[in-house]
Amino acid sequence: MTATLHPSSVVEPGARLGDDVVVGPFCHIGANVEIGAGSELVSHVVVGGRTKIGARARIFPFAAVGLPSQDLKARLAEGALSIGDDCVIREGVTINAGAGAGTVIGARCAFLAASHVAHDCRLGDDVVLSNQVLLGGHVEIGDCVMIGGGTAAHQNVRIGAHAFVGGLSGVEGDVAPFGLASGNRAHLFGLNLVGLRRRGFAQERIERLRKAYRLLFARNDARVFAARIEALARDFAGDADIAVLLDFLRAPATRPLCAPRAKPAALEE
């Protein structure tokens, strides 16, 4: 092991630190923790539970990672947490271990100051939680999602891949993939056009998603929502992006779907 440990830090026997890990002053690493090569704990970081952190993580002061769930109905026992490679965890972030199946976080995620991930959440790759974002238990977030500062997501909410949620939102319902949602309580404004263009989506690809959103959420369509979903599957057969959207809409859910409040023209903005 070639880890560098500050003499004021505590690393319990059994902890596994990869090559070139740097543990700064006043950190505490539990016995069942594994930290990947090239990671850095700047200072005053606590990592506990059955936690596995990937390579090249950067964790800033006063972050608490892998500690037991705050679910008052659950026993305070060591749960599991897995974090992918190249993640950034800023000051005061709390990421709780799972009370059941475990908390799982993908690669290249960024958790800005004072954000919180509760027990048994599932986050994909390239997710960004801005300052003071709060995720309740069992929240599921797809790849390339960005959430604005001060937003809170209700327990069991799902937010699909490539979606954007504006700051200071209260998210009670599921946000469909590629969508833009905001407000208290949050509602859907249309597509996350800025995010899609930044990620290199061609205009033709974006136009197909626009047509799909109009089909799903048009107010002048008298069909029930299940019928709209089946029409979407028929009209866009073989489209990979629409398949992502259909998988999300057809998956089991405990929360309602976040829908537009504005007139259909808002989907074109």
Rank of each mutant, 00 (worst) to 15 (best):
D143L: 11
G18Y: 08
V33G: 04
H154W: 05
P252T: 01
A259P: 00
A31N: 08
T51L: 02
V127S: 04
G195C: 12
I159N: 02
D86L: 00
I141N: 02
G190T: 08
R198M: 12
T51I: 06
S130Y: 04
A153G: 04
G102T: 03
H116P: 04
P13G: 06
V165Q: 04
G142F: 03
G102Q: 07
A31T: 12
L76G: 02
I83F: 01
I229F: 05
N220K: 15
L41C: 05
G200C: 03
R58P: 01
S39N: 09
D143A: 10
A251D: 06
V244Y: 07
A233F: 10
A226S: 15
G136F: 09
G79A: 02
G195E: 13
L72Y: 08
A110P: 01
L245E: 07
I53K: 01
A57P: 00
N96P: 06
L232A: 04
V117I: 15
D143K: 06
N32V: 06
Q155W: 05
L76D: 10
R197L: 12
L129W: 01
A253C: 11
G100Q: 14
R234K: 13
V145F: 06
L67S: 01
E34A: 14
H44K: 08
V117M: 12
L257E: 13
